[in-house]
Amino acid sequence: MSVKLARADRRAAWMFMAPMLVAMLVVAVWPLARTFYFSFTDAYLDDPTNYSLIGFENYLEVIGDRTWWIAVRNTLLFTVVSVAIETVLGLGIALLINQAIPGRGLVRAAILVPWAIPVVVATKMWEWMLNDQFGVLNQVLISMGLIDHGIAWTANGSLIMGVVIFIDVWMTTPFMVLLILAGLQMIPGEIMEAAEVDGIPAWKRFWSIVLPLLKPAIGVAVLFRVLDALRMFDLAYVLAASSEQVMTASIYARNRLISFQELGIGSAASTWVFLLVAFVAILIIGVLRLDRAAGEAP
């Protein structure tokens, strides 16, 4: 390509990018920059115009706070357990509905329902179903004779994290199923037929062919879910806003910012959350070599 043409191409590319860049600047970079800036100040939310720069003090304050570390621990626990369950479950369901079973189309549509329900609605719905006195789950367990009085699922400290994970799994497994199903359908049928004719047993077909070929799809799905889970706020907040058992890093930042009106410290906590998410994202992309795997798809 001639130099002139290349330059024209580059100019066209910038022109197409410009509206996007402006939008990003307004909705993402500007608030981020503001947050970043305030994290170095002692500003309060009731009067954000009156502040002075105090360097890294807020950052140290956050990591010196025992509650912050509880929130981080909760976040990581929630992320690892829920994403692990969602991945295994998602893979299983995707493999199942990829089979030519009758009514497959209906199943595929039905499976998306939990994902289409807003988080707050789904959480409230489950909260009711899990209610210790009126909840349907306790009713069933009691009538089956497994327990004699209702379990306080959402009040009991040791159970509530389990409940949060359960609801998250219920809501977002469909997303996993969908992404993995798309990956499954990319695998040419003849490859599986070749393996079948060659007498490869089913478990080995899965382990040595399906799984490696699905790796990019699963990797992307896990990445999305992990980033989402690390920022998790709504589910835990709606279910148990005040419980330290399920306080996530995002809830911690929100509490400092809104409940305590500490704009500076809240911003610093938000920045820590951002750094945590970015660090994990880079880690996953590096470990799974997603950038390279993408070019390797069959």
Partner: peptide, 12 residues
């Protein structure tokens, strides 16, 4: 043994 038109080699 079956030889396919698309070869159907295991890409990975």
């Amino acid at each position: 043994a079956f030889v396919f038109q698309s070869y159907a080699l295991y890409p990975h």
